[in-house]
Write a protein that binds this DNA or RNA. Structure first.
Lengths: 211, 211
DNA sequence: GGAGTATCCCGCAAATTGGTGTAATATTGT
DNA sequence: ACAATATTACACCAATTTGCGGGATACTCC
């Protein structure tokens, strides 16, 4: 029941006309919101973006022509300050992380309820990052270390430095130990991980979240 | 208004008795929830954990003795399936990422409203990852690439592979190009980033989110 | 007391790295 | 269509790094 001096302007890019229109209807009928564009492809949207300048864009991933992920950086280039919310059925690792790394500020799956979408639009404009539960868990899991690492604390530290591209000499200097010690640690790391090279050690360690 | 056959059991570790008791009261008076322990330190909690086995733990970061971050892996070891929610005033990068990498399943700041805390407990048990808006944004920002990278697509690809510890030969093989080409790319990368070594290139690129 | 961790030492062959050039072809933006 | 970038490739060189083999001392935790 608050007075909105300037309504929040929203654009939608979604190829399914049913979904597109239902979102349009939902948002247009929410107090303080205005739908300033609804398009079925990035190409169609791009023609009008510079005139309409929405605050928030709801973006589908599976689109004809340029898909949502590819569209993200292009949109950001045209409208650097716009907040982009992904709205899709895809909830697999790769799509989520690609979208986030390309500049999405939020990620909702299509089973999200109407009022949660409205909430999400408000939240993203207040500096939040709305995510569906499953997406949030994916994201958080990506940070979690394996608690059962076979590597000791020091070994983990050494391998982390190796993964930053540092040479043994440099690691030794930074950890205030002898290069021979670093050598021994790496030798032991290789043995524990059953690998025979830097690259394989980093790969195995990352896959198992030891580093 | 649904029937809870087995209430959700919650434990709280929080040194401020005011806050601890107010959370206890709040949760104990919510339908379907039971507070099975409220402690002012990890040490105190650890004595009782194996008997009470809560579903969810609300954990403060600033604690006397072992702090919340250090307590996380210890709790996980005692109770591998428990869901831990961090509840704190700290919202800086380091604390958030430390907590998540040590196994926290959610991160709430202390200005979170009562019913949002109850929501968060439910959410985390349903496989979600409740976060305050600011924390969510921190987490999402950590994924975002810099859109103004001076590196070309191929150069970025090469540098990513370098950062995985791969040798030039191996990168060449995997990208189906000559090793000399990889060398040229690396040469150009060094020039663009104004560095003279692998480690510095990776460091600069990561700091600026080029990779 | 034994297992694991952390530290340091030696030697050696093979591979990798970083620097200096040059240059053809392809792609992209205006 | 032109200019700038990007991508590809080649040559020569010195220095450094890497991975593997062996062995040693000391400290901690259970």
């Amino acid at each position: 029941m608050q007075i909105q001096h300037t309504p929040i302007t929203v654009a939608i890019i979604e190829d399914d006309s049913m979904i597109r229109e239902s979102y349009s209807y939902l948002i247009a009928n929410s107090e303080g919101f205005e739908v300033v564009g609804a398009y079925k492809s990035y190409e169609e949207a791009a023609k009008n973006f510079l005139n309409i300048r929405p605050d928030v864009i709801l973006l589908d991933v599976e689109l004809p022509g340029i898909n949502g992920i590819e569209a993200l950086p292009k949109i950001k280039k045209l409208l650097p300050t716009v907040q982009i919310l992904i709205l899709t059925v895809y909830e697999n690792n790769e799509t989520v992380f690609d979208a986030l790394s390309q500049g999405a500020s939020g990620y909702l799956t299509k089973n999200t309820s109407s009022n949660k979408i409205i909430e999400a639009i408000k939240e993203v404009l207040e500096g939040g990052a709305p995510m569906s539960a499953g997406v949030a868990r994916l994201v958080i899991n990506s940070f979690q270390r394996n608690q059962n690492s076979p590597l000791s604390k020091r070994e983990t530290e050494v391998l982390e430095n190796v993964s930053l591209g540092k040479s043994r000499r440099r690691i030794a200097d930074e950890l205030f130990i002898d290069m021979e010690t670093v050598k021994t640690h790496i030798k032991n790391i290789y043995q524990k991980l059953d690998v025979h090279s830097k690259a394989d050690a980093i790969k195995t360690a990352k896959e198992n979240k030891f580093i």
